[in-house]
Design a protein around this nucleic acid. Structure first.
Lengths: 264, 264
DNA sequence: CGCCCCGTTGAGGAGAGTCAATGGCTGTGG
DNA sequence: CCACAGCCATTGACTCTCCTCAACGGGGCG
């Protein structure tokens, strides 16, 4: 985790580079951004609901969750943030956060004030595209989370979530293996999937017994990924992992400094 | 419905004007947009999953749903589109649609090709802000849908959904009454909330009996909105209905044609 | 050492699902 | 103008997935 952090923005760049082709001058703009590197301990809030953050966050290392609490204590985890994820672009509209974001493990976060960030987007249509892609992917993940919770059984939900986290984990780390870090407790998984910890435990035990997964302390191995994918009706399409066609590149010349939302 | 259609873009304008202050020159840009007015019959697809639409859609009248089908026929409705809603801004990133959009009632839809749309955003930071607000609101509605399905009982889900649709319906029509058009069948509500039609029917019958709602053909009245809100843990905040501070207005002068994503 | 958090397992219960029958409404065609 | 098909809402009876309550054990940490 420390190692990941020391390389600076590279997690985000690695993630983006898989989908968007970016030249070094775009990256220069990005690298020169004014920013602050913050560390949050496990359990600490990164953003609190109701707070108005005028910053954009990029998660460098660690896992975080976005969640909402009901008045009677029920918690729903809306989504997970993995290294390389950008969040609260909605802060650019100067809106209050309607959900909290909390570190699940220790998190290293780059915090970028809105204004320089906006200026950067204005400076490069391709960077703007890249961030727009990231926002579109996040929204797509939200939609899939709705399908997962609304129309899948407990086993399907867990399998589907594990496969998503696995793909996203690979995107962040670059390691193409069937094993991933798993800092989530049964309660976290339950609150993400609309189940109870007890039932998650039972269901995952059954999955272990049938050779679908293997758990070690702090990590999980997808022992039979194909079978898992079949029985969870997992279809990666929603992650939008194909290379993007950058609209901007066609619509307007590179040297034009306008056209931000365009690509985005 | 026909009356609504004849007034052109006004539904969208009315919705936006409640939250974003826009001068007439911005609207001029918007009004001059190249567009096509299409009519879709009930049940007809507006966007098909897998299709790459290079257009932005604005629903003028009628109701539509975004949904996804699992291989075995299960359907999950991801969200509802009401008059004034804009959809598939993600098409601007040249991505395939990962979900289908279908008309539930007859729908009048303005279809705007991406390029002129992008040009419009570039022409007015305030318009860009307005559309960004719309995208942020939509994402927030998705998150709330996750909480609704994941951590609420059947009665809470139905109550909460009705309250959301009611607020959004008011935003579109301007009528401040407790009654709204209800073209949804039990099956639609069930597929949106992760329930079965039978259970939705039972639960709504109970709600009728306890004086929470009243149903007539094609419409529903929220008889005791406060009680409904309390027992569904409904909190409007997530709809972001307050007036926006337009960042752009502060960050850059009105006459600058750059700064689109900035406000957005 | 002892506390606390976490995962697991058991027993019993409840909310929601499944299957099936009925009746109303609408549209259509003979 | 009526008969019939098709869709939709409702209700009953039964089932099952998932929840609740509870107890126990292991591991990390002060």
């Amino acid at each position: 985790m420390d190692a990941e952090f020391r390389v600076g923005m590279s997690v985000f760049k690695r993630r983006l580079a898989q989908y968007v082709q970016l030249e070094s001058d775009a990256w220069t703009l990005f690298d020169e951004l004014e920013r602050q590197d913050n560390v949050f301990r496990a359990g600490e809030d990164i953003i609190q609901a109701g707070e108005k953050a005028n910053e954009v966050f990029i998660l460098q290392s660690g896992w975080a969750i976005r969640y909402r609490l009901l008045e009677d204590g029920r918690r729903q985890i809306v989504n997970f943030m993995l290294p390389g994820d950008v969040f609260d672009l909605q802060a650019l509209a100067d809106l209050q956060a309607d959900h909290s974001v909390t570190a699940i493990t220790e998190c290293h976060v780059a915090i970028i004030p809105s204004n320089p960030f906006i200026a950067m987007l204005q400076g490069s249509g391709r960077l703007a595209s890249a961030f727009w892609w990231s926002a579109v992917q996040e929204e797509s993940i939200l939609r899939e989370q709705i399908v997962r919770i609304g129309r899948r059984s407990a086993r399907e939900r867990i399998g589907h979530l594990l496969l998503e986290l696995h793909r996203r984990y690979i995107g962040a780390t670059g390691d193409e293996v069937d094993r991933l870090n798993m800092p989530l407790t049964r309660a976290d998984i339950a609150d993400a999937l609309g189940l109870t910890p007890v039932h998650v435990s039972r269901t995952m035990s059954a999955m272990r017994r049938s050779g679908l997964i293997k758990e070690e302390k702090g990590s999980i191995t997808l022992e039979d990924r194909d079978r898992l994918a079949r029985l969870s009706y997992f279809d990666v399409d929603y992650l939008h992992l194909r290379k993007l066609n950058l609209l901007s590149a066609e619509v307007m010349p590179e040297d034009s400094a306008t056209g931000e939302l365009g690509d985005s």
